[in-house]
């Protein structure tokens, strides 16, 4: 097919321009090396949780505490007619309590068999982090807190292991009166 010479010329110009402007992509741009996360604050620290497991972010307005549940279960709340439990991850990592302020949010995470909200002081937004920048936790951190963390990024964002949290039997409350 014959091309219009002007169009061809334009294409050539655009190509040279593109070449001149082109930059090496930051290393490792291949698919799958980035993690989409939702960033949020909890006490004084910044956390990230994989966005694929986040159903929605919901303001935490009314919270009904339940008697007889472990301390990490803050209570239950009404999300458009459905009742969901709210978990306070701070209790796992021994962070100080900031109290339930007006700004409190819950991040609803779920997979096929589990769904609950985790408490967040403020939600910062969504972004992607490169897997390469995530480093494992220092060995000094142990316990359940360590089990729920994938690692820490260069900017000190603690990346939570949403799949691990959702699959953990220990987070399920299943108590019978003997």
């Amino acid at each position: 097919m014959n091309q219009d010479p002007i169009v061809l010329n334009q294409a050539a110009i655009l190509k040279t321009r593109a070449r001149a402007l082109a930059q090496e992509p930051k290393k490792a741009a291949q698919a799958g090396t980035f993690l989409e996360i939702i960033e949020f604050c909890l006490a004084s620290e910044t956390y990230g949780i994989e966005a694929v497991f986040v159903r929605e972010i919901h303001p935490l307005k009314d919270l009904t505490p339940l008697p007889g549940v472990p301390a990490f279960v803050l209570g239950i709340t009404n999300v458009r007619g459905k009742i969901l439990s709210v978990v306070d991850l701070k209790k796992f990592v021994n962070l100080p309590d900031k109290g339930l302020g007006e700004l409190n949010k819950m991040i609803i995470i779920r997979n096929s068999r589990m769904e609950f909200g985790i408490l967040a002081d403020a939600v910062l937004g969504a972004r992607s982090v490169s897997l390469d920048t995530i480093e494992p936790l220092p060995a000094t951190v142990t316990g359940i807190g360590a089990d729920y963390v994938k690692g820490v990024t260069g900017e000190h964002v603690i990346i939570l292991d949403a799949q691990g949290i959702l699959d953990d039997e220990r987070i399920i409350v299943n108590e019978v009166v003997a």
């Binding site: 339940l66 007889g68 239950i76 009404n78 007619g81 009742i83 969901l84 409350v173 019978v176």
Partner: peptide, 27 residues
């Protein structure tokens, strides 16, 4: 009566919860 979420499989003394007209959740 509604369930209280998959995470709370069974809580002692609690059978479920209901939502009042005010939107308040009561166990």
């Amino acid at each position: 009566v509604k369930g209280i979420g998959t995470q709370l499989k069974r809580v002692r003394n609690i059978a479920g919860a209901t939502i009042l007209g005010t939107g308040k959740v009561v166990p």
